[in-house]
Amino acid sequence: MNCNLSDNQKSIKIMLVGEGGQGVQTIAKLLAKAAFAKDYHTSYIPNFGTEQRGGISIAFLQVACEEIVSPKFVDPNVFIILSSRDINRTLRYITKNTTVIYDKYLVKKEIVEKLKKQSPTVVGVDAFELATEKLSERSLNILILGILIGFVDCTLIEKITEIMDKKFQKYYDKKPELKKLNHEALTLGLNLTTA
């Protein structure tokens, strides 16, 4: 197996925090499937409330070079947050070693202050703004997926594109411009992390 996780890590634990409808679970699943296809050991747990839309939505994702014993964790390497909702529920997961990425538009200032108390590495990104200005609001999750790839293994982008295109083919059939939007979003996101 070709282990090529960023920063020579043996495993990466990612927590994605958003709200229902943002596509948090979709991108976690896409990334997990691509990593598995590239022979990584992978596990993904979705975690959401009773609402189909709008409630807090969390994904626990692990990509590793060795077998994953326990799928649940409280010490993510990467914590990505796209919503100000229910923050107290997820703050406890951030450790001093966690890299926290928040969206500058979607996450309120007072929340960012709370995040900064948990970890020295808290980085704001203009994902929502970039997505809405250059692409469309609905590209936000794919852009975030691009960011995520940077944290896991940049070479996954081809596999992810392949799986993503297959998954969204029926939407592409109706709206052909969507495919280009998705590809651009992915690259835009990836560029944000590598920059």
Partner: peptide, 9 residues
Amino acid sequence: GYQGKMHGE
């Protein structure tokens, strides 16, 4: 719920 909803190998 974790085992049911999670993806794994």
